[in-house]
Structure formats: structure tokens, C-alpha cells
């Protein structure tokens, strides 16, 4: 908050930052297509035997989808880094503490 502010009631300011996260409709559709393709691949693990690759490939695909949505649909890739910091702080903290907690139950050794 500063003192030299505008006295602004008209909500007309919203636009000049609207364009800046640059992704076109085409781009969004491409992302969605990739997401759909990965999902199809994920589902295929149910029908086709992936052998030892089963677990790692599923986890990797999950992570890739997750970060694609976060980066592109949620704009984190284009937005101010502060948003990323705040969100990833929560995300990685959650992963850290819960993985540690599950580890004390020997969850990953079973």
C-alpha cells in the first residue's frame, strides 16, 4: 500500500496484466491433449503388463500431469515467483512430513 495511489473505483484496470501470462487457446488445448494422452497411457497400465516399470511409470506420469496443470493451467510458470514459493512450500512440506510419517510405519518396506 502506498500513499501515492490512484483513487480508483472503476474496475477498468484489470486488463493490462491480463495478457501477460502468454498462452493462447491453442496452447491450452495442446496441454489438454498431452494430459489426455498421459491419462490414456496411465489407464493402459491396467490392461497391459508394464512389468517392473509399472510403479515408477505411474508415479512419473502422475507427477508430470500434476506439474503441467500447475505450471500452465494455473499459470505458475508465468506468474510471479512468490506464488510458486508459497504453494510449493506447502506442497513439499506435505510430501516431506507425510512420507516421513509413513516411513515410521515401515510403509515403504512392505
Amino acid at each position: 500500500m502506498t500513499t501515492d495511489t490512484t483513487h480508483n473505483t472503476a474496475p477498468s484496470h484489470g486488463t493490462d496484466h491480463a495478457v501477460e501470462h502468454g498462452m493462447s487457446t491453442r496452447g491450452y488445448i495442446n496441454i489438454a491433449l498431452i494430459l489426455a494422452a498421459i491419462t490414456a497411457l496411465e489407464v493402459s497400465t491396467y490392461y497391459v503388463d508394464f512389468g517392473p516399470l509399472f510403479l515408477p511409470s505411474l508415479l512419473i506420469m502422475m507427477v508430470v500431469k500434476f506439474f503441467m496443470v500447475v505450471s500452465y493451467f494455473m499459470h505458475l510458470k508465468f506468474d510471479n515467483k512468490l506464488f510458486s514459493w508459497l504453494f510449493y512450500a506447502g506442497l513439499f512440506l506435505a510430501v516431506g512430513v507425510y512420507v516421513a510419517a509413513l516411513a515410521t510405519f515401515h510403509f515403504f518396506l512392505r
Binding site: L86, F87, Y88, A89, G90, L91, L93, A94, V97
Partner: peptide
């Protein structure tokens, strides 16, 4: 974004 960060711990649990 803060709220969503917090939600990570909810769903994580």
C-alpha cells in the same frame, strides 16, 4: 495461493 498451499497438508493427511 496460501490457501492452496495449506490445502496440500489437508489432502496429504
Amino acid at each position: 495461493w496460501l490457501f492452496l498451499g495449506s490445502e496440500c497438508l489437508l489432502f496429504g493427511g
